[in-house]
Design a protein around this nucleic acid. Structure first.
Lengths: 69, 77, 69, 77
DNA sequence: CACGGCTGACGTCAGCCCCT
DNA sequence: AGGGGCTGACGTCAGCCGTG
């Protein structure tokens, strides 16, 4: 084959691969950012649940000790 | 299997766990609330528990702003 | 001054700035990775505490209901 | 101020909150355990609470492996 | 086994914000 | 006001692992 066309084909394949990997990297960064937000949100939710559970446990403990009098 | 490589699977796993834990949490809270309602009916300050911050089926992390302001307001309430 | 030395000085400053930013980027990536690990670890700890609190709350509720009999 | 830019400050804030919450958690657990010890002294299965997984002052995230195997083992225990 | 999708890590640019 | 420290975002390379 014509070496000119061979080099052109190689360059085009490389360019197409770079293009795909470029968009893949964008999506990957987006997903990673979303994952971090997911973790932070989950931490906040668990914090609220922990506080509520502790408060409820304290109240129930007071009621239980009050019953023993 | 426990730690997937893809971020989508990690998010899916966390959402699943969060849903299960929230369900168990709300159930226990309702049970305790129902068991102690006869003892102190006047002290029922039914402040919303803020376990899950919104009505969505799953947290839907896409609709979360900069630093989760809604959660911040939930913490201060 | 000698324009040759001016260009050389400019290039040297740019290279030094690039070098600093390079190492800064390394440290930043390391800190970000550590932050993610911190979040994941925090989530796991809060999960354990939540489970323990729920179990303790269930037990205490059973004891409380047993007292009412 | 609530959301710092530097990762170091974020980690410091999370460690601080975790330390406070762990302290409050252990205190409440000890209180409830002390209040119910007279009722059921034979059912005292004193399984370690596993709230904080190690003896370090603060979690020290640097010494955590791939997917926090110690925590995984803590969950299964 | 080769191929392609995702991700880890790198270097660079742009931009913010603290500090002097 | 301007310089420098950190970080967000980009593109590229290297590598893992599921899928054909």
């Amino acid at each position: 084959q014509n070496p000119q066309q061979i080099a052109e084909e190689t360059s085009r394949r490389r360019e197409l691969r770079l293009m795909k990997n470029r968009e893949a990297a964008k999506e990957c960064r987006r997903k990673k950012k979303e994952y971090i937000k997911c973790l932070e949100n989950r931490v906040a939710v668990l914090e609220n649940q922990n506080k509520a559970l502790i408060d409820e446990l304290k109240s129930l403990k007071e009621l239980y000790c009050q019953k023993n009098d | 299997m426990a730690n997937p490589r893809k971020f989508s699977e990690k998010i899916a796993l966390h959402n699943q766990k969060q849903a299960e834990e929230t369900a168990a949490f709300e159930q226990v809270m309702r049970e305790v609330m129902g068991a102690t309602r006869n003892a102190q009916p006047q002290y029922l300050h039914l402040s919303p528990t803020l376990g899950s911050y919104r009505g969505g089926s799953l947290p839907n992390v896409n609709q979360i702003g900069n630093n989760s302001i809604d959660l911040q307001s939930a913490l201060t309430n």
